[in-house]
Design a protein around this nucleic acid. Structure first.
Lengths: 244, 244
DNA sequence: GTCTATACCCCGATAGAC
DNA sequence: GTCTATCGGGGTATAGAC
């Protein structure tokens, strides 16, 4: 009996995966707004009403795709933090570059899933609570990376406008109490700016403007790394530098 | 007879405007992917086939909305460049802040039109040539602003990675031959990063993360201004500075 | 868990009368 | 330039048989 239930569950998992795979194909063809259970069923040789046993509504399927996409890019970012281009474990800028380039690489390889999570919100769809954990993973990787750098080499703490000080303190308390508030504020900015670079490339704003996109990206994220205080070999010798 | 033609043309312009206004409302409710001529006609008390006298297809209506949106944000940016917060005409960072804040303000006031032009591309729609001019206007404003600063006070030319040098030269030749290539490359990056900040705020990535969004934005764009070489009062005294 | 059938909607686009 | 009518699609979701 347990084997029967096991077999049934296995089948269910397989069909669920097939539905999501087909849905991802449709995402590419028609976009998230037009994702339809019927079309997925048709392509799978099923009838639409059968899908409702797997996903109670179109929005639930969409949520599953969103969670999967956040997890996929989160996996890629975490893996890239583990192995950097540079063998020296202390080369934190190399890791910063590795993580940001890995995120860009995933986005270029999965443009429609990227658009699903970092593009315009799907009209009429409101993300349930299930998505907030996965959505934070790339940010967590960046925080962890900067934290490592802070502990090992210190950071060149960036300047912080007076009007931003309370918010920086609040964000730091929320996100990384062990980091200087100015670093956390710059990191949140850098996080948004990083995805700005990727989105412009992916969404066509760089058409007829930028050709060597990887070079521009690497240059920009290198500067972003500096903006959050990463030192890339230089010893601080600047007033704001913090020790390990 | 000329008055008749005038009246007809006036009526045509008014109906065209009414169609676009209603289409913009639908953009907000359903998103660009689901924009439908039929729904627009229904809401206007017309029949769908009548709309085809004004827009030969759904995509043509979409194109008109896209061009209008680019022109609207372009207008706002150009106006903000004219009048800055700071009375001193040479306060180029103040103008930089004014322009970027104006763009953000327009985006917050018109989130769906913003999503139409800076969000995920509409599936199945390819932008015709008509959009490329209007699409470049904000970028042109930023270039003009930096050019003014360059002529008046000089710029602190940012560092330029060797691998980016050819592309920077190419972009400079295309976009602003009178500016140092390193400045042009940084400006293109800053342009993308600026919209990254706005998109994250608008598309919900800052939910539960950033509260004082205007303060964070102002801080970030101030740093972006520095990254392209704006001096904000400081005299350069740095090796890369260029005179007027 | 899959099927058929159904209720009740939506769309783009065109033809031809007025 | 607006209308009716039409072609030929599309969709979500449920009921009920098997």
């Amino acid at each position: 009996m347990s084997t029967i239930r096991g077999a049934r569950e296995r089948a269910r998992i397989e069909v669920t995966a097939a539905i999501k795979d087909e849905a991802r194909k449709q995402l590419a063809a028609e976009g998230a707004a037009k994702l339809s259970l019927r079309a997925v069923a048709r392509e799978l040789g099923m009838v639409s009403s059968a899908l409702y046993r797997y996903f109670p509504s179109r929005d639930d399927l969409l949520t599953a795709l969103i969670v999967d996409a956040y997890d996929a890019v989160g996996d890629v970012a975490e893996a890239a933090r583990g192995k950097s281009d540079d063998p020296a474990a202390t080369a934190h800028t190399a890791r910063w570059t590795a993580v940001t380039c890995a995120v860009r690489g995933w986005a270029l390889a999965h443009p429609h899933e990227y658009a699903l999570i970092y593009g315009s919100p799907v009209p009429g769809y409101t993300a349930p609570q299930d998505t907030v954990g996965p959505a934070s993973r790339v940010g967590q990787v960046l925080i962890a990376l900067v934290r490592d750098a802070h502990r090992a080499d210190g950071l060149a703490v960036p300047p912080l406008a007076a009007e931003l000080r309370p918010e920086a303190a609040r964000m730091a308390a929320d996100l990384a109490p062990d980091l200087p508030p100015a670093v956390v504020a710059s990191l949140v900015s850098a996080w948004a700016q990083l995805f700005g670079l990727i989105s412009f490339e992916l969404f066509g704003q760089f058409n007829r403007v930028v050709e060597a996109r990887e070079q521009l990206f690497r240059h920009a994220v290198h500067e972003l790394g500096r903006s959050v205080g990463l030192l890339d070999g230089r010893t601080p010798a600047r007033p704001g530098a913090t020790g390990a």
